[in-house]
Amino acid sequence: MYDKKIIIPILAVIVVVLTYPIWSLFGKGAAAPELDLNTPEIQALAEKECIEDTEFMRSNHMELLNEWRIKSVREGTNVYVASDGQEYEMSLQNTCLSCHSNKENFCDSCHSYAEVNPDCWDCHVGGEL
């Protein structure tokens, strides 16, 4: 091989950069966070279920909250009818956080794991008032 002195160092650098996630993680665990559903409010519930099913909430809660935000702030409607017909108040503070009162162990655990920075908390306090 010609020009080994140039090609091999450049290749080495590129391979190190490409495999950066592998060696940055070396020896460290990478388990996904477990959602903490153990709040006094949830424990007190007779039926432990969210307004929609878990799978939907996991992937679509941000869409739902966005819809709530537009409806309640701009259009003045305040009632969310869930797919099972039950009605809820469209409020992050009064509906979501009334059960999930543990923002640090619920919202933040996934958000900081997946590096998502929603701007909910620019205005909302989170947790108990």
Partner: peptide
């Protein structure tokens, strides 16, 4: 069409750590 980001990251991280785990229902 949203996918579960936490599940995606769990899969990606497990691949990188060479301990593959496939979370259910990513989409």
């Amino acid at each position: 069409v949203r996918a579960d980001v936490a599940g995606v990251k769990e899969l990606a991280m497990s691949l990188v750590a060479f301990k593959p785990v496939v979370p259910v229902d990513i989409g």
